[in-house]
């Protein structure tokens, strides 16, 4: 069946089998491999993408269900003026070790700070509670998301 999904601002029209999962569509058909497949059982959140701005587990959404929607993957975070604040904060605060969970963590973090400009430790931990880091690097992940929030708040105050 024909699906038309806007991924990171570009329209992708493709003919997919109904059983194609959104994550496989993104990785194999569109060729964006930043979205990872971890557990493949709706537990780990490595496959997180934003669907119309809302974080979802792309291993548990059919590509057909995303027809007509706007999807943001980790590749879409970077803007014209460089890395997204969440990306530079993960770099600066060592928010990643092996990096496997990082795309999902950053997308959930970006979605959180878009709604909550000053999240507490508990709020960040609650927001990322559907994402697993098997390196257990949560302390710096939480720190990085808060750093990003503070930088976004600072730059919007300054402008």
């Amino acid at each position: 069946m024909e699906v038309n999904i806007t991924i990171n601002g570009s329209e992708h029209a493709s003919d997919v089998e109904p059983r194609t999962l959104l994550v496989d569509h993104i990785r194999r058909t569109v060729g964006l491999t930043g979205t990872h497949v971890g557990c493949d059982t709706t537990s780990c959140g490595a496959c997180t993408v934003l669907m119309d701005g809302t974080p979802v587990k792309a291993c548990t959404v059919l590509a057909a269900q995303a027809d007509g929607s706007e999807v943001t993957t980790v590749e879409g975070l970077k803007g014209a003026d460089g890395l997204h604040p969440i990306q530079s904060a993960f770099t600066d605060d060592h928010g990643l070790q092996c990096g496997f969970c990082t795309p999902g963590m950053m997308l959930v973090g970006a979605s959180l700070i878009a709604e909550n400009p000053d999240p507490s430790d508990d709020e960040v931990r609650w927001a990322i509670s559907g994402n697993l880091c098997r390196c257990t690097g949560y302390i710096n992940i939480v720190k990085a998301i808060q750093t990003a929030a503070a930088r976004v708040a600072e730059s919007s105050n300054g402008s």
Binding site: T42, G45, T48, T54, P55, V56, K57, T60, V61, V108, W126, A127, S129, G130, N131
Partner: peptide, 9 residues
Amino acid sequence: VADPLVRNR
């Protein structure tokens, strides 16, 4: 119920 991402869907 479940986790935040599952609750979104």
